[in-house]
Each structure stands twice: as structure tokens, then as C-alpha cells.
């Protein structure tokens, strides 16, 4: 991992944050970090981010842009200066945790999802400090990215993500033009029987697979329930989710002893 130390040192002040994540235990990880002389930030992936990103082998790297969108993924050997500098544009050189004074109000509202309030505070700050403009720019960029991703979600059939995301995001958008876009998503879903049925099926998938099976019998039970749910949904987004889950359970079953 020396490359991570180098990247961290070289690009930290230009907007890059290096973050290593592991799902292993702390004791051995801490010992390893010390032995390797790692100076970059690291943490424990307890929320299953690796699984959500479809990571099948370690090490694996993802480059996430300032707006929260994944801009590159691959083996760490693929991360080089050209890749990093290509995506540094627009990244905050002053991270949120260094925002002080009036900028703290912007940060607080921003992290709370109160985008309207954050932008108002940024505009106020911009009257006396150019940093207010940069802060406002980042808030706008992140907001646009989140709205666009919800619009993309509903177009590809991920109705549940679109619905829940829109409901959550709408709360902090009062008076902003994005409010209408986000409310249009929830309105569309509420009025469309087919979209609501797809969302219901997605909720059912989550319910069926809520507990990780510990026995082959439990894998079978979940697979059977999912296969029943799949009928008539082949080729849809939720159909793809069901098929992926069944494959996952099939592989898990092969690894279980009983």
C-alpha cells in the first residue's frame, strides 16, 4: 500500500482524500496498518459497502467524485497520477471538517440535507468572502447529482430507491427548483399502479432476504420465495435484483456445511 501514502501526500491539498476500508477485525488490522507504515485514513466497513458495490475480490478501488458519483473502479494498480488529476477538478481543497466561522452554518445545513438553507447561507457568506461561492458551488453540485440519480433510478426501474430517496431529499428543498423535480418523482410513482407494484416487489425482496441464512435449508427457503416472486417479472429491474439474490444464495449454500 505505499502507493496510497504517496497519493495521499501528493494530492491531499489538491482535493483528494484516500480512505482504506476493511471488514476485518480491528486488532489484526491495526497491527497490519502499523507494520506497513500506512499514514492515510482507514475505517471499518460495517454497513456492507463492499457488498453493495459488488466487490468480489480484494483489493478493489473506487474513485468517487466530489458530487458523490463513482467515476472509476478497478484494481488499485490502475490508480495513477493521470486518473487522479483527471477527476480533481471541482473537488474541495478545503474539506468540510475545516469549514469554520460562517462556513460552519453552511456545512451543518448541508450535512442535514437542508440544501435550501445551505445555499442561502452560502450566498450570505459570498457577499463578504469568496469561499461562500465555492461552498455554494459544491452544495449545488451534490444536490444536482442526487436529484439526477433519483431520476435515473426511476427510469431504469429502481422504483424503491427513487421513491425513498425523493421523499427524504424533498424535505430540505423548500423553495428550490429541484423541489419540483423531486416531488414529480414521488407523484409519478403514487399515480402509477405498475410502478407501485414494482416497488412492492422490491420491498418484498428485502423482507425475504432480511436475515442472512446460516443453514442450507434457510438458503433454500429464501430461494424458493424469491423464485415465486420472480414470476412475471423477468427482464425488469426487480427481476434482475431477484436473480442476483438467488445466485448469491446459491453460492452461499455451497459454502455452508449444514
Amino acid at each position: 500500500m505505499p502507493h496510497l501514502n504517496e497519493l495521499d501526500e501528493q494530492y491531499r491539498d489538491k482535493g483528494l482524500t484516500v480512505l482504506a476500508l476493511t471488514s476485518e477485525g480491528a486488532k489484526r488490522t491495526e497491527a497490519w496498518i502499523e507494520a506497513k507504515g500506512a499514514k492515510f485514513a482507514y475505517a471499518y466497513d460495517r454497513g456492507g459497502l463492499a457488498k453493495q458495490l459488488g466487490v468480489r475480490g480484494i483489493p478493489a478501488s473506487f474513485l468517487v467524485g466530489p458530487d458523490g458519483k463513482i467515476v472509476w473502479q478497478g484494481h488499485p494498480s490502475g490508480v495513477n497520477d493521470a486518473l487522479v488529476t483527471k477527476h480533481l477538478e471541482g473537488a474541495l481543497t478545503k474539506p468540510l471538517y475545516e469549514w469554520d466561522g460562517a462556513a460552519k452554518k453552511i456545512k451543518s445545513a448541508f450535512l442535514d440535507g437542508q440544501f435550501g438553507k445551505a445555499l442561502a447561507e452560502a450566498a450570505k457568506l459570498a457577499e463578504k468572502d469568496p469561499f461562500g461561492e465555492e461552498a455554494g458551488r459544491i452544495v449545488r453540485q451534490v444536490l444536482e447529482s442526487r436529484v439526477a440519480s433519483l431520476e435515473a433510478a426511476i427510469e431504469k426501474g429502481d422504483v424503491l430507491t427513487a421513491y425513498e430517496g425523493s421523499k427524504a431529499l424533498a424535505k430540505g428543498l423548500k423553495g428550490l427548483p429541484e423541489q419540483e423535480r423531486v416531488e414529480a418523482i414521488t407523484k409519478r410513482i403514487s399515480k402509477d399502479k405498475e410502478l407501485r407494484a414494482q416497488m412492492k416487489a422490491q420491498e418484498k425482496v428485502l423482507k425475504i432476504t432480511a436475515e442472512t441464512p446460516r443453514r442450507k435449508k434457510e438458503c433454500d427457503a429464501q430461494m424458493d420465495a424469491l423464485k415465486k416472486l420472480l414470476k412475471g417479472k423477468e427482464g425488469t429491474f426487480v427481476g434482475g435484483q431477484i436473480e442476483a439474490k438467488v445466485l448469491e444464495l446459491f453460492q452461499l449454500k455451497s459454502r455452508l456445511q449444514f
Binding site: G15, T17, T22, P59, S61, Y97
Partner: peptide
């Protein structure tokens, strides 16, 4: 608090 930065996430194990 890393929002707005270019974040390089590397999944690793000891």
C-alpha cells in the same frame, strides 16, 4: 465530512 472531495476508496484486508 468527506463530501465534496475526490475520494479514493480502497477495500483491503490484513
Amino acid at each position: 465530512e468527506l463530501t465534496g472531495r475526490l475520494v479514493l476508496i480502497e477495500f483491503f484486508a490484513y
